[in-house]
Design a binder for these strands. Sequence first.
DNA 1: CCCCAGTCCTGCGGGC
DNA 2: TGCCCGCAGGACTGGG
Length: 284
Amino acid sequence: MPELPEVETMRRGVEPAVGARIVAAERLPSPRKPIAITPGIADFNRRVEGAKIARTARAGKRVVLWTDRADAIVFEPRMTGLLLLDESPDAVYARFRLRLRGGRAKQVIFWDRRGLGNVRLLSERQFAEQFGLDRLGPDALEMTAELFRQRLGSSQRAIKVALLDQKAVAGIGNLYASEILHLAGVHPARPCRQLTGRQWEAIAKATAEVLELAIRYEGSTLSDGTYRNALNKEGGYQNRHRVYDKAGKPCPRCADRIIERIVQAQRSTFFCPGCQQKRMAARG
DNA sequence: CCCCAGTCCTGCGGGC
DNA sequence: TGCCCGCAGGACTGGG
Protein backbone atom coordinates (compact mmCIF):
# COMPACT_ATOMS: atom_id res chain seq x y z
CA MET A 1 0.00 0.00 0.00
CA PRO A 2 2.82 2.22 0.34
CA GLU A 3 1.65 5.82 0.31
CA LEU A 4 3.53 8.77 1.76
CA PRO A 5 3.55 7.66 5.43
CA GLU A 6 4.71 4.13 4.60
CA VAL A 7 7.34 5.31 2.12
CA GLU A 8 8.58 7.95 4.55
CA THR A 9 8.84 5.21 7.19
CA MET A 10 10.88 3.13 4.76
CA ARG A 11 13.14 6.10 4.04
CA ARG A 12 13.78 6.66 7.73
CA GLY A 13 14.29 2.95 8.15
CA VAL A 14 17.18 2.82 5.68
CA GLU A 15 18.96 5.86 7.17
CA PRO A 16 21.54 3.53 8.79
CA ALA A 17 22.79 2.82 5.26
CA VAL A 18 24.05 6.40 4.95
CA GLY A 19 27.83 6.50 5.13
CA ALA A 20 28.23 2.89 4.01
CA ARG A 21 29.90 1.88 0.77
CA ILE A 22 28.18 -0.31 -1.78
CA VAL A 23 29.92 -3.64 -2.26
CA ALA A 24 27.49 -4.89 -4.89
CA ALA A 25 24.05 -4.38 -6.40
CA GLU A 26 22.44 -7.76 -6.96
CA ARG A 27 19.27 -9.10 -8.48
CA LEU A 28 18.15 -11.79 -6.04
CA PRO A 29 17.06 -15.16 -7.38
CA SER A 30 13.28 -15.38 -7.21
CA PRO A 31 11.13 -18.04 -8.87
CA ARG A 32 8.70 -15.25 -9.75
CA LYS A 33 8.71 -13.04 -12.79
CA PRO A 34 11.59 -10.62 -12.32
CA ILE A 35 10.86 -7.02 -11.42
CA ALA A 36 12.08 -4.14 -13.56
CA ILE A 37 15.60 -3.06 -12.71
CA THR A 38 17.09 -0.35 -14.90
CA PRO A 39 19.65 -0.22 -16.29
CA GLY A 40 20.40 -3.96 -16.44
CA ILE A 41 21.91 -5.33 -13.25
CA ALA A 42 25.45 -5.57 -14.71
CA ASP A 43 25.58 -1.88 -15.65
CA PHE A 44 23.73 -0.96 -12.49
CA ASN A 45 26.33 -2.74 -10.37
CA ARG A 46 29.25 -1.29 -12.30
CA ARG A 47 28.01 2.25 -11.67
CA VAL A 48 27.34 1.91 -7.95
CA GLU A 49 30.12 -0.46 -6.89
CA GLY A 50 32.37 1.30 -4.40
CA ALA A 51 30.15 4.38 -4.16
CA LYS A 52 29.22 5.75 -0.77
CA ILE A 53 25.57 6.30 0.14
CA ALA A 54 25.49 10.02 0.84
CA ARG A 55 21.91 10.65 1.89
CA THR A 56 18.34 9.45 1.66
CA ALA A 57 15.38 11.27 0.17
CA ARG A 58 11.81 10.67 -0.86
CA ALA A 59 10.20 11.57 -4.18
CA GLY A 60 6.46 11.19 -3.65
CA LYS A 61 5.98 7.47 -3.05
CA ARG A 62 9.57 6.53 -3.89
CA VAL A 63 12.62 6.15 -1.68
CA VAL A 64 15.86 7.60 -3.03
CA LEU A 65 19.43 6.76 -2.02
CA TRP A 66 21.87 9.36 -3.38
CA THR A 67 25.43 8.21 -3.89
CA ASP A 68 28.57 10.32 -3.62
CA ARG A 69 28.76 10.02 -7.42
CA ALA A 70 25.55 12.03 -7.72
CA ASP A 71 23.54 9.02 -8.86
CA ALA A 72 20.10 8.31 -7.45
CA ILE A 73 19.03 4.77 -6.60
CA VAL A 74 15.25 5.02 -6.76
CA PHE A 75 13.01 2.37 -5.17
CA GLU A 76 9.36 2.46 -6.26
CA PRO A 77 7.31 0.04 -4.13
CA ARG A 78 3.94 0.53 -5.91
CA MET A 79 1.47 -1.90 -4.34
CA THR A 80 3.54 -4.38 -2.34
CA GLY A 81 7.18 -3.27 -2.37
CA LEU A 82 9.21 -2.92 0.83
CA LEU A 83 12.69 -1.85 1.84
CA LEU A 84 14.32 -3.93 4.53
CA LEU A 85 17.61 -3.83 6.38
CA ASP A 86 17.57 -7.25 7.93
CA GLU A 87 16.01 -10.44 6.65
CA SER A 88 13.01 -10.38 4.33
CA PRO A 89 9.59 -11.46 5.55
CA ASP A 90 9.67 -14.11 2.82
CA ALA A 91 12.78 -14.76 0.76
CA VAL A 92 10.70 -15.81 -2.24
CA TYR A 93 9.89 -12.18 -2.92
CA ALA A 94 13.24 -10.61 -2.14
CA ARG A 95 14.08 -9.07 -5.52
CA PHE A 96 17.13 -6.86 -5.20
CA ARG A 97 19.91 -6.16 -2.73
CA LEU A 98 22.60 -3.60 -2.09
CA ARG A 99 25.41 -5.21 -0.12
CA LEU A 100 27.16 -2.66 2.07
CA ARG A 101 30.28 -2.26 4.15
CA GLY A 102 31.63 0.30 6.55
CA GLY A 103 28.31 1.65 7.79
CA ARG A 104 25.63 0.79 10.32
CA ALA A 105 23.75 -1.44 7.86
CA LYS A 106 25.00 -4.52 6.03
CA GLN A 107 22.41 -4.53 3.28
CA VAL A 108 19.30 -2.94 1.83
CA ILE A 109 16.78 -5.38 0.37
CA PHE A 110 13.92 -4.54 -1.98
CA TRP A 111 11.12 -7.04 -1.41
CA ASP A 112 7.98 -7.11 -3.54
CA ARG A 113 5.24 -9.74 -3.54
CA ARG A 114 3.24 -8.67 -6.57
CA GLY A 115 6.30 -7.46 -8.38
CA LEU A 116 4.77 -4.27 -9.75
CA GLY A 117 7.52 -2.18 -8.20
CA ASN A 118 10.86 -1.27 -9.70
CA VAL A 119 14.39 -0.14 -8.91
CA ARG A 120 16.15 2.45 -11.05
CA LEU A 121 19.56 4.04 -11.14
CA LEU A 122 19.32 7.62 -12.41
CA SER A 123 21.85 10.35 -12.99
CA GLU A 124 21.14 13.70 -11.35
CA ARG A 125 19.85 14.96 -14.65
CA GLN A 126 17.60 11.97 -15.31
CA PHE A 127 16.26 12.35 -11.78
CA ALA A 128 15.43 16.00 -12.35
CA GLU A 129 13.68 15.15 -15.60
CA GLN A 130 11.59 12.39 -14.10
CA PHE A 131 10.67 14.05 -10.84
CA GLY A 132 10.53 17.74 -11.75
CA LEU A 133 7.51 19.80 -10.72
CA ASP A 134 5.91 19.18 -14.11
CA ARG A 135 5.96 15.42 -13.49
CA LEU A 136 5.51 15.25 -9.73
CA GLY A 137 3.67 17.87 -7.69
CA PRO A 138 4.82 19.39 -4.40
CA ASP A 139 5.11 16.93 -1.55
CA ALA A 140 1.86 16.49 0.35
CA LEU A 141 3.62 17.48 3.60
CA GLU A 142 4.47 20.87 2.06
CA MET A 143 0.98 21.69 0.87
CA THR A 144 -0.83 24.81 2.01
CA ALA A 145 -4.39 25.89 1.27
CA GLU A 146 -2.96 28.41 -1.16
CA LEU A 147 -0.98 25.74 -3.03
CA PHE A 148 -3.95 23.39 -3.16
CA ARG A 149 -6.11 26.12 -4.57
CA GLN A 150 -3.49 27.14 -7.06
CA ARG A 151 -3.01 23.61 -8.37
CA LEU A 152 -6.55 22.21 -8.17
CA GLY A 153 -8.87 25.17 -7.66
CA SER A 154 -10.10 25.35 -11.24
CA SER A 155 -10.41 21.60 -11.79
CA GLN A 156 -13.80 20.05 -12.41
CA ARG A 157 -12.62 16.77 -10.98
CA ALA A 158 -13.98 15.31 -7.76
CA ILE A 159 -11.67 16.25 -4.89
CA LYS A 160 -10.99 12.61 -3.96
CA VAL A 161 -9.87 11.80 -7.49
CA ALA A 162 -7.77 14.97 -7.71
CA LEU A 163 -5.95 14.15 -4.46
CA LEU A 164 -4.66 10.98 -6.12
CA ASP A 165 -3.15 12.95 -9.02
CA GLN A 166 0.59 12.83 -8.32
CA LYS A 167 1.20 15.74 -10.68
CA ALA A 168 -1.03 17.92 -8.52
CA VAL A 169 0.27 16.77 -5.13
CA ALA A 170 2.75 14.00 -4.43
CA GLY A 171 2.31 11.23 -1.92
CA ILE A 172 -1.42 10.82 -1.26
CA GLY A 173 -2.90 7.45 -2.24
CA ASN A 174 -6.28 5.82 -2.08
CA LEU A 175 -6.33 5.07 1.64
CA TYR A 176 -5.18 8.45 2.94
CA ALA A 177 -7.36 10.40 0.49
CA SER A 178 -10.46 9.05 2.24
CA GLU A 179 -8.96 9.65 5.67
CA ILE A 180 -8.02 13.24 4.84
CA LEU A 181 -11.42 14.17 3.44
CA HIS A 182 -13.22 12.71 6.42
CA LEU A 183 -11.13 14.75 8.84
CA ALA A 184 -11.64 17.82 6.65
CA GLY A 185 -15.40 17.23 6.50
CA VAL A 186 -15.50 17.47 2.72
CA HIS A 187 -17.57 15.20 0.48
CA PRO A 188 -15.28 13.16 -1.79
CA ALA A 189 -17.38 13.74 -4.91
CA ARG A 190 -17.37 17.52 -4.65
CA PRO A 191 -15.80 19.12 -7.72
CA CYS A 192 -12.59 20.98 -6.83
CA ARG A 193 -13.76 24.24 -8.35
CA GLN A 194 -16.75 24.33 -6.01
CA LEU A 195 -14.63 24.14 -2.88
CA THR A 196 -14.57 27.25 -0.72
CA GLY A 197 -11.48 28.84 0.76
CA ARG A 198 -12.51 27.49 4.11
CA GLN A 199 -12.71 23.97 2.71
CA TRP A 200 -9.28 24.22 1.11
CA GLU A 201 -7.98 25.31 4.49
CA ALA A 202 -9.59 22.28 6.09
CA ILE A 203 -8.12 19.98 3.45
CA ALA A 204 -4.62 21.40 3.86
CA LYS A 205 -4.83 21.10 7.63
CA ALA A 206 -6.24 17.56 7.48
CA THR A 207 -3.57 16.50 5.00
CA ALA A 208 -0.79 17.51 7.37
CA GLU A 209 -2.53 16.11 10.41
CA VAL A 210 -3.37 12.71 8.94
CA LEU A 211 -0.02 12.16 7.22
CA GLU A 212 2.07 13.32 10.16
CA LEU A 213 0.18 11.13 12.60
CA ALA A 214 0.40 8.17 10.22
CA ILE A 215 4.17 8.67 9.97
CA ARG A 216 4.38 8.75 13.74
CA TYR A 217 2.60 5.39 13.80
CA GLU A 218 4.89 4.10 11.04
CA GLY A 219 2.16 3.65 8.46
CA SER A 220 -0.75 1.25 8.00
CA THR A 221 -0.43 -2.52 7.82
CA LEU A 222 -3.73 -3.75 6.34
CA SER A 223 -5.32 -7.14 6.94
CA ASP A 224 -3.13 -8.85 4.35
CA GLY A 225 -0.14 -7.97 6.54
CA THR A 226 2.09 -6.99 3.64
CA TYR A 227 3.41 -3.65 4.77
CA ARG A 228 6.37 -3.68 7.18
CA ASN A 229 8.98 -1.17 8.19
CA ALA A 230 12.68 -1.66 7.43
CA LEU A 231 13.00 -3.89 10.49
CA ASN A 232 10.12 -6.10 9.38
CA LYS A 233 7.68 -4.70 11.96
CA GLU A 234 4.06 -3.81 11.28
CA GLY A 235 2.82 -0.24 11.28
CA GLY A 236 0.24 0.99 13.78
CA TYR A 237 -1.91 3.53 11.98
CA GLN A 238 -4.42 0.91 10.78
CA ASN A 239 -5.86 1.04 14.30
CA ARG A 240 -6.59 4.73 13.88
CA HIS A 241 -8.30 4.67 10.52
CA ARG A 242 -11.43 6.77 10.51
CA VAL A 243 -13.26 5.48 7.45
CA TYR A 244 -11.01 3.43 5.18
CA ASP A 245 -12.49 -0.06 4.64
CA LYS A 246 -15.12 0.65 7.30
CA ALA A 247 -18.28 0.62 5.21
CA GLY A 248 -21.30 -0.27 7.33
CA LYS A 249 -19.68 0.80 10.58
CA PRO A 250 -20.71 3.89 12.56
CA CYS A 251 -18.82 7.09 11.87
CA PRO A 252 -16.15 7.62 14.55
CA ARG A 253 -16.98 11.31 14.73
CA CYS A 254 -20.77 11.65 14.68
CA ALA A 255 -21.63 8.05 15.62
CA ASP A 256 -25.14 8.36 14.23
CA ARG A 257 -24.40 7.81 10.56
CA ILE A 258 -22.98 4.76 8.82
CA ILE A 259 -19.84 4.94 6.69
CA GLU A 260 -20.50 4.41 3.01
CA ARG A 261 -18.37 3.02 0.21
CA ILE A 262 -18.59 4.47 -3.28
CA VAL A 263 -16.43 3.92 -6.37
CA GLN A 264 -14.63 6.84 -8.01
CA ALA A 265 -12.25 6.35 -10.90
CA GLN A 266 -12.58 2.59 -10.35
CA ARG A 267 -11.33 2.84 -6.81
CA SER A 268 -13.04 2.60 -3.44
CA THR A 269 -13.81 5.75 -1.48
CA PHE A 270 -15.13 5.70 2.09
CA PHE A 271 -16.92 8.60 3.75
CA CYS A 272 -19.55 9.60 6.29
CA PRO A 273 -22.67 11.05 4.64
CA GLY A 274 -23.36 13.08 7.76
CA CYS A 275 -19.97 14.65 8.39
CA GLN A 276 -19.16 15.07 4.69
CA GLN A 277 -22.20 16.69 3.15
CA LYS A 278 -22.57 16.74 -0.57
CA ARG A 279 -24.11 20.19 -0.53
CA MET A 280 -23.00 23.10 1.58
CA ALA A 281 -25.06 23.28 4.73
CA ALA A 282 -27.59 26.07 4.61
CA ARG A 283 -26.46 29.04 6.65
CA GLY A 284 -28.34 30.66 9.46
C1' DC B 1 -7.51 18.88 -20.13
C1' DC B 2 -10.18 14.97 -18.38
C1' DC B 3 -12.04 10.39 -18.09
C1' DC B 4 -12.14 5.52 -18.55
C1' DA B 5 -10.54 0.80 -19.25
C1' DG B 6 -6.82 -2.15 -19.52
C1' DT B 7 -2.24 -3.75 -17.95
C1' DC B 8 1.56 -5.20 -15.03
C1' DC B 9 1.56 -9.38 -10.83
C1' DT B 10 0.24 -12.36 -6.66
C1' DG B 11 -2.67 -13.68 -2.88
C1' DC B 12 -6.74 -13.65 -0.35
C1' DG B 13 -11.55 -13.58 0.95
C1' DG B 14 -16.24 -14.37 -0.32
C1' DG B 15 -19.67 -16.91 -2.57
C1' DC B 16 -21.36 -21.03 -4.35
C1' DT C 1 -13.79 -28.55 1.67
C1' DG C 2 -12.57 -26.71 -2.76
C1' DC C 3 -12.75 -23.88 -6.66
C1' DC C 4 -13.42 -19.66 -9.11
C1' DC C 5 -14.00 -14.93 -9.34
C1' DG C 6 -13.25 -10.30 -8.06
C1' DC C 7 -10.61 -7.25 -5.74
C1' DA C 8 -6.36 -4.81 -3.46
C1' DG C 9 -2.20 0.31 -1.14
C1' DG C 10 0.12 2.43 -7.67
C1' DA C 11 1.18 4.12 -12.00
C1' DC C 12 1.29 4.15 -16.92
C1' DT C 13 -0.78 3.98 -21.63
C1' DG C 14 -3.96 4.46 -25.33
C1' DG C 15 -8.40 5.92 -27.02
C1' DG C 16 -12.39 8.87 -26.82
